[in-house]
């Protein structure tokens, strides 16, 4: 179990808040749409802080302007991967940004095992650090 205050991975914009309801997720989707940003749903069973590429649950929804439709994709992903981390990402294609503009977790495993810190002592007092995702002790597909 993780020992930080919420006993949870705190990536994303809203991990310090109570889990978002469907209505709250819809409000954030609407905000992204109002800015012209495309939303996308991604999932993973390895929430390592440097695991950039979560699996895409389909392409970013560039042409879908209906918040209910986007929420439906979120819920399809939750149904398919009920015990994975799932996040909603928003992308801006505006010059000077052309990157991710929102990222928030909308689903997580019931039990979050967290990470271990491996210290490899080197010369003198030098230490090399490895953050180890406990979930990855098991093979892909068997992690939660």
């Amino acid at each position: 179990m993780m020992t930080n205050l919420g006993n949870r991975v705190t990536q994303g914009q809203f991990s310090f808040l109570p889990d978002l309801t469907d209505a709250q997720i819809t409000a954030q989707i609407k905000y992204a749409l109002s800015k012209g940003w495309a939303s996308s749903v991604e999932y993973t069973d390895d929430p390592h802080p440097r695991n950039t590429y979560w699996e895409m649950f389909g392409n970013p929804m560039f042409d879908l302007k209906d918040p209910a439709g986007i929420l439906m994709e979120v819920n399809n992903c939750r149904k398919t991967f009920p015990n994975h981390y799932i996040r909603v990402i928003a992308f801006s294609s505006v010059r000077g940004v052309e990157s991710v503009t929102m990222s928030y977790i909308v689903n997580r495993p019931k039990k979050e095992p967290g990470f271990g810190l491996v210290r490899q002592e080197g010369e003198g007092r030098m230490i090399r650090y490895t953050i180890h995702s406990y979930a990855t002790d098991k093979p892909e597909g068997e992690r939660y």
Binding site: M2, T3, N4, V9, T10, Q11, P47, H48, P49, R50, G114, F115, G116, L117, R119, R125, I127, Y129, I131, H132
Partner: peptide, 18 residues
């Protein structure tokens, strides 16, 4: 530097964040 990096990495492992 040495103590701070231990703190940074330990906190990173405790939260899953960079």
């Amino acid at each position: 530097f040495l103590y701070c990096m231990d703190a940074v990495n330990k906190a990173s492992a405790a939260t899953g964040e960079v």
